[in-house]
Simulated scan of single mutants.
Amino acid sequence: MLNKIVQEVDKYGYLGNREIAAAHFCDNLRKAQRMTAQLVEAGRLVERRIGNSSRFCLPGQAALFDNVTGHRDASNAILIDALVTGLATGVITDRQIQLNQAAHTLNNKIPDGLLLDEYESPDGHRVDYSWVEVENSERSGRDVHVLGDWLISTFAATRSWHVLPEYRRGYLAHVIVAISAPAADKIEPRLLGYIQKEYTSPAHAEYIRAVLPQRLKFIRV
């Protein structure tokens, strides 16, 4: 189990005890705290107190603590919850994406995390993606417009996007907008309002009414 925790921390960049407890110990925070204390004592993890809780990373990667934000915390929590609840069969973390941005770019945009749903179909092995977009501050009007245009163009044009060679049958199934701070609360009405105002052709209007609510999800974390 100790090795698994070290591997998990490496995959996500850094984690707190709550995330480790959720991933490995059925939310048993005390057990996670005992395990991370052992790993810190053995020199296999580095601990830093940030705010009211500790974060852990691998030795030699303490520079990651300089960029601790609610952004990556929210992304990590969403990905771990999706794995624990069975919503995803695999994930690609924000840390992994930042290390290889070119491989995870879609229409000049990179995600804050990806949920993978792998399965066998009559056409062979497939994987559907859910794109995680974390919002932790108020967006400017221009940013909202850019995101709205990206959503419509991406959903309308992309049917076989893949981020790894082994997933050439990949399909972008959903975009999940995760609201992680009160300042971002208005992103949902602003984004939907822009899309409805800008895309008014009969085809777009029908898509926005019938399909977009199935593919664009808003959650609060």
Rank of each mutant, 00 (worst) to 15 (best):
R209A: 14
M1S: 12
R220D: 14
D73C: 01
L116N: 02
G86D: 11
C57N: 15
V84L: 07
L114P: 00
G70T: 05
G148S: 12
T69Y: 03
L192S: 09
P111K: 03
A181D: 11
A23C: 09
K197R: 15
G13V: 00
R209C: 03
R34V: 09
V68N: 07
L212W: 02
T105L: 06
L87V: 02
A183K: 11
S54T: 03
R18Q: 14
D185K: 12
I208K: 14
S201W: 00
Q196E: 14
A157Q: 13
L29M: 15
A77E: 13
D73A: 06
S75M: 03
F155G: 06
R95T: 05
S130T: 15
K109E: 08
T36A: 03
E8N: 10
K186N: 10
F56R: 14
V134Q: 09
K186H: 08
R190L: 01
A205E: 13
R142T: 13
A173S: 12
R55H: 11
H24T: 04
V177D: 09
A82F: 00
G16E: 04
L29Q: 15
V134E: 05
K4G: 08
Y207H: 08
Q61Y: 10
Y207Q: 07
L87C: 13
K11V: 01
G170Q: 03
L151R: 06
P165A: 09
G86Q: 11
Y12I: 00
P202S: 14
R209H: 13
V221H: 15
E133G: 01
P213M: 12
W161G: 05
G90R: 11
N100A: 05
P122M: 13
I208V: 11
I97R: 02
A103F: 01
N67A: 08
E188D: 11
E47C: 03
R168M: 04
C26I: 04
F218W: 02
G141S: 11
G170C: 02
R139Q: 14
E118M: 06
E135K: 07
M1E: 14
H162D: 12
H104N: 11
Y199G: 06
D94Y: 05
